[in-house]
Amino acid sequence: MKRCLVVDDSSVIRKVARRVLEELDFEIIEAEDGQKALDQCFEDMPEAILLDWNMPVMDGLEFLMQLRSSKNGDKPKVIFCTTENDISHIAQAVQAGADEYIMKPFDREILENKFHEVGLI
């Protein structure tokens, strides 16, 4: 079973993502900010990361840059999932190594579609 780390400071969003992704056969791990997500990755690297942008302690972009420059940090597929939906944020995320990008609000179909897009399902 593939594991997906869901990183978002909103417990509601984490719950919504968990419900959809569990149905798609992912094992879910949650983190509420970038630092906790990074700690989790160093302990045990997941196959997929669904990543919010704006979070306390460490934001999603900072997390992604640190992840991509660390050992095995190139392995997980990273899908941003954020209300930052302007072209400059998207370009910045892709530049930093995001594989896909979801603009909130999203629905089940979009989530499934993007995981398919990066080859996770």
Binding site: N85, I90, E109, I110, N113, K114
Partner: peptide
């Protein structure tokens, strides 16, 4: 719409 461009379109092609 934002929904429509998220159905099937890879983010790199959107950019």
């Amino acid at each position: 719409t934002q929904f429509e461009v998220q159905r099937g379109l890879p983010i790199k092609l959107l950019l």
